[in-house]
């Protein structure tokens, strides 16, 4: 099939429109990414990168405890954050969707995500004000006499998890609310007609129907949480580093780009695995 001159002219035009965007993504995303993948199989001497192919960086990741532990800590924190955030956000989303009058729902939702609009760095810093030894929570507890010693709430895993949960409760409230509001009231009416009480309706009808939405929200939480550097850096202290912190550490004084690249690829593989698992589960749900 040969294209007529008119078709060829049209096609040239289409390419002219699409190319700037494609080139930008190719040049500033695809090329750097490919380069980083290559870099992860190279090594360095002093501060210079040497292009000799080797698996050393990946071997080192599995053999050196301080590198591998980064992934373990990341996975543990991310799992905890995802579960806690879903458990805290679901009831709130449900209350806003079911208990708050229709015309106040939008307002309730906007209020639930208002602190989103503080800058990310500032939000973690604010939690430091709340959680540190002299912070609001400890001062209040000491003042009431419930405690005699301040709790260790920041500069450790607890601080990181609280900071993360705060962010993701807001995000998940939004996505779960969107899910709940889409459910047709007919399901609930049918369940009630068949004699289900409020709890049974929720447990056997509403919850299963919103499960796919929860999974998508949980996946989003997982991806954003495991790739984040700011919250653990500000709230987590120096004893337990998560993978992004370990990556950034390679860039610091050591300037070990090949190692940082290898660790980044490990991070990407973990995210991809989570994506595949999530997509599989969703497909199973649908059939």
């Amino acid at each position: 099939m040969t294209a007529t001159p008119l078709e060829r002219a049209e096609r040239r035009k289409a390419w002219a429109f699409a190319l700037p965007g494609l080139l930008w993504t190719g040049l500033f995303f695809l090329v750097p990414f490919a380069y980083m993948a290559m870099l992860s199989f190279w090594t360095r001497q002093g501060r210079e990168v040497v292009a000799t192919w080797t698996l050393d960086n990946y071997v080192a990741f599995f053999e050196k405890a301080h590198l591998f532990k980064g992934l373990v800590v990341s996975l543990e924190i991310t799992a905890a954050v995802t579960v806690i955030s879903v458990l805290l956000a679901y009831p709130l989303a449900w209350i806003i969707a079911e208990r708050v009058p229709k015309r106040w729902q939008r307002f309730a939702l906007i209020m639930a995500i208002l602190p989103f609009w503080t800058s990310y760095v500032v939000r973690s810093y604010s939690w430091l004000l709340v959680l540190s030894k002299g912070g609001v929570v400890n001062q209040a507890l000491l003042w009431t006499g419930l405690l005699s010693e301040p709790l260790e709430l920041s500069a450790n895993r607890t601080g990181t998890i609280i900071g993360f949960v705060h962010f993701f409760v807001m995000l998940l409230t939004l996505t779960i609310y969107a899910n709940l509001i889409q459910l047709s009231p007919n399901y609930r009416r049918a369940a009630a007609d068949l004699g289900a009480n409020a709890f049974q309706t929720f447990w056997h009808v509403v919850l299963p129907l919103t499960l796919p939405g929860i999974m998508v929200g949980a996946f989003l939480t997982f991806v954003l949480c495991i790739g984040d550097y700011i919250t653990p850096q500000i709230l987590g202290g120096n004893n337990e580093l998560v993978l992004p912190q370990v990556i950034m550490l390679q860039l610091g004084r050591r300037a070990d780009f090949p190692m940082a690249a290898a660790l980044s690829l490990v991070l990407m593989v973990v995210v991809t695995l989570a994506y595949v698992a999530c997509a599989r589960w969703l497909k199973m749900e649908r059939t």
């Binding site: 993504t25 750097p32 380069y35 980083m36 991070l267 995210v271």
Partner: peptide, 27 residues
């Protein structure tokens, strides 16, 4: 495929996007 390429950066952590750009810029 091309549309997939255009939205691909959305699926990658910004840390990795930044790191990739930085290592290319270094070269």
């Amino acid at each position: 495929l091309l549309r997939g390429l255009l939205v691909a950066p959305m699926t990658v952590s910004t840390l990795i996007i930044g790191l990739g750009l930085l290592s290319v810029l270094n070269v």
